[in-house]
Write a protein that binds this DNA or RNA. Structure first.
Lengths: 396, 396
DNA sequence: CAACTTTCTCCACTCACAGGACAAAGAAGG
DNA sequence: CCTTCTTTGTCCTGTGAGTGGAGAAAGTTG
């Protein structure tokens, strides 16, 4: 199969492609209602999209009382690869141009094994997906990494939890391997873009997306666009001081948010509690598995274990306190909580809400939903696909 | 004098006006270098600007080895009014279209006296400036108020320190009185715009501007644009918790930043210290004036008073701690400190810098200047003039 | 079968814009 | 003083983007 070679020739074509991506199939007339162009000009641009193969016209829609319309849709053969590299696992998914997931693989993997090993894994997962017949090749790929990225170049910079990746030319390397355009971003930003495209943040222009996994990060969307900061480290809230003179953190400071609550901190606290005999539930789980994770804490809490509940509540209070500050500062229209700890569910959410609603100004919280992400582990890969499609669906 | 009636008819004219505003007089050829237009098209648009009277061609520039160029400049008769309403005083200034201050008045005034009284004051100050011959009328006015503003309508919403202003139609009322277009914004945002236009933040796209006066606020500029948040309360960092279980705050919570450091808090602490006999310097000043302000503390510190220095340092640490969190979150390219307390100068700055550089990530602080604003009390009025000129220099 | 709707296509006209030719005005050198 | 070169500004024409209307195509409804 010949891969996508064409790019939209002008802003109109780019806008049409995005309308088709976000709104699904459409007739020319419907497109005309959503774009500021005359019917004649619209027809010309649509025809050009059909000629270049970016879009296709297949079949006729049911009549609505007059002539039946042609169904214009994005070329159904286009394929994007979405890659989400977390601290402890890798997600790879194939989507069509409408960013619907056609296939999705997840594999545990330690990012600290370095870019070479991880790349091998990613490529083999991509090959496996291709082998199922979902794709014969990729028209573009988006990839998220758990650390700051110099966005224009697609290169991680000084990533604390993945030191071997510093300066590794992710974009260039992956582009070479896959033979298609690639865009790289921070994993948290991609989660935010995923929820913005297909999740709870649809049609919200300013929101925060807090991802609590092994670490803690925050995607910032301002005016519909991701804010990355001058060095690509915006949203790195894990090392904001949550507790004065609190626990020592790997970064060298004390009391960092991440040291007090995150997937890693929660597991550590749970083990500690189990060993101190505070919770039979946790102790028996520890004895059974030899270790504990957030999942165990969630299960224990669901079973009514008071210690587990306390851990969750206290963690939620810490995160909530920090989020309260960010809400006062940023005044978002929505706060999304996502990442591995979403399994902790409403206990966590309740603690966060309590802190935010109590500490932030009424004007900022008056109409502020604080909700769990609705895409779960697919948010990242959808965001990755969205990243590259935004790039490809821009004037060349 | 006939006031400005025309507005730029298209984006090109708007861009030309902004180039002339920000770069001063220019020849057609120089303008051509800064805009993506052919010489012929450029000439047409410049001619139209001359026709409408928005710009004028006066005199010829010195030759640079060939034909002498015409000096194109903004109409020198255009006048903007910049108004900056603080908690305890009002600034009013007249600028030309290049946003140069032609006249500036400052008057102490308590904003809590309400919109009617303040408006009267503002209008009389504007009249006084007009009477000096600086202006025969105004082509536009910008006004800043110390509280959240619903920006599109130009109406303050639920402002904590100026309760009487809630819902008062500032934009409409002032526009009616002055007979010209008016834009309203938060005073901190205007300070940020002022420093961006003519101060330390020139050519910086992402920065924070922390204004420490009676209260504390933070202007947020992302991608060159002010971020106002969904309800116009973005940057309201005065009630972020700085000290767990700290001092009670007027807002009902404890430990708010503003309760621990701000012009008001500093004055209170200084009086307390003087009464406790901790500082002879402060005590004698208290005895002399009956009260203390930040100016006294600054003077005492300059005179070597250890208690005053401690107050400044401790306050700087509090603010610095909060700013450190914001720097981690937002990853700005610059932090500007401004407002009434700039008189505290480098002692304050040093404390803030220490906290930020210690607590935030190296990647975010590596190349991060933290500096005092360079416009002082004119930042607000320049920002106000810039606000209205941005509005007027947009396609109609 | 007539009347009405909705969708799509075709065509002629307008206007924005580029790009080159050229005029105006001065500098530099012989 | 005259020639040559440089810079600035103007004029003119060709091109292509875009609009709006007429009308064809393909339905539904009564």
């Amino acid at each position: 199969m010949r891969r996508m070679t064409a790019r939209p020739a002008n802003g109109h074509q780019a806008k049409l492609l995005r309308l088709l991506r976000d709104g699904g199939p459409n007739s020319r007339a419907q497109l005309g209602d959503q774009i500021d162009l005359s019917r004649s000009k619209l027809a010309v641009e649509v025809d050009r999209l059909l000629e270049t193969g970016l879009a296709v016209a297949d079949g006729l829609a049911a009549s609505r009382g007059g002539r039946r319309s042609h169904n214009i849709r994005l070329n159904p053969d286009l394929r994007f690869l979405g890659v989400d590299i977390g601290a402890t696992s890798v997600d790879v998914a194939v989507t069509n141009a409408e960013l619907e997931i056609l296939g999705h693989l997840n594999q545990p993997m330690d990012v600290r094994e370095g870019p070479v090993a991880v790349f091998e894994q990613v490529l083999s997962m991509a090959a496996k997906l291709r082998a199922t017949g979902l794709a014969e090749g990729f028209d573009g790929a988006g990839i998220g990494v758990p650390g700051p990225v110099r966005f224009p170049e697609g290169v991680p910079v000084a990533p604390p939890i993945m030191p071997g990746w510093d300066g590794f030319p992710v974009r260039e390397a992956l582009s070479q391997e896959l033979g298609c355009p690639v865009m790289v971003d921070n994993d948290v930003n991609l989660m935010a873009m995923g929820e913005q495209h297909a999740g709870v943040a649809r049609s919200v222009g300013d929101f925060l997306c807090v991802k609590i996994g092994t670490g803690i990060g925050c995607g910032i969307v301002a005016g519909g666009d991701v804010h990355r900061g001058v060095t690509g480290s915006a949203g790195d809230i894990g090392h904001i001081q949550a507790v004065p003179d609190g626990r020592p953190c790997a970064c060298g400071n004390r009391g960092c948010l991440e040291a007090h609550f995150s997937g890693a901190a929660l597991a550590r606290d749970a083990v500690e509690a189990a060993q101190q005999g505070l919770s039979e539930e946790l102790a028996s789980r520890l004895a059974a598995n030899g270790t504990l994770t957030g999942v165990d804490v969630a299960a224990a809490a669901a079973a009514g274990d008071a210690t587990a509940l306390d851990l969750i509540r206290e963690g939620g209070n810490r995160v909530g306190q920090v989020i309260a500050g960010l809400v006062s500062f940023f005044n978002p229209g929505l706060v999304v909580i996502g990442g591995g700890v979403t399994g902790l569910g409403h206990n966590l959410l309740a603690a966060i809400r309590t802190q935010v609603y109590r500490q932030s100004l009424p004007l900022a919280t008056g109409n502020l939903p604080i909700v769990l992400g609705e895409l779960g582990p697919t948010a990242g890969v959808i965001g990755a696909a969205r990243l590259i499609s935004d790039h490809l669906f821009s004037p060349a």
